[in-house]
Amino acid sequence: MEKIIRIESKTLVLPLDDVDTDQIIPARFLTTTTRDGIGNALFADWRYDANGEPNADFVLNGPDVAGCEVLVAGRNFGCGSSREHAPWALVDFGIRAVVSTAIADIFRNNSLKNGLVPVIVDADTHQYLLDNPGITVIVDVKQRTLSLPDGRTATFPIDGFSRHCIMNGIDQLGFLRQQEAAIADFETNRPWTP
């Protein structure tokens, strides 16, 4: 997993609420057994028309998309299924941070394990971002802040452990495996067995 400490990028703005994982990556792309090229399916049904041609008015097909690493979305981004294909597709496309006022739980968890920073900000900052697409923002994972071009900053919540893992590109499985003794102990000593 790539280390992320600070992201400075223009924003892409998708001003819709409750964008679900079926939109982020439709189910028909889930028959893959790898993650290869999964970014091509990102927002497939909004990005392409019935003939497979890009929809000119969809934000991901805009002229300034190259290099954009921050996606600003409406409330409750990533609701719906637990498919980790959703953050995989976003990361494969080049997105490193998603900004909203609320991000669905499972999607948020999956993002944190894939180098995609969930940035939950206050309603005012969010509205400003929605109203001003394409501005350059700085997501600072170390400081837990998002800075706007006018100098304002908003803080966002990220627990210390996830922050540490994101900043150091740490795979959490390694940490869990170090708990082996405690796990074995738990299995031996629990009062009942499943």
């Binding site: 499972i106 394990k113 869990l176």
Partner: peptide, 15 residues
Amino acid sequence: GIGSTEAAHVLVTQC
């Protein structure tokens, strides 16, 4: 519900 990375965590550590 969990994602695929977490599924790997559970497969390997049951935690």
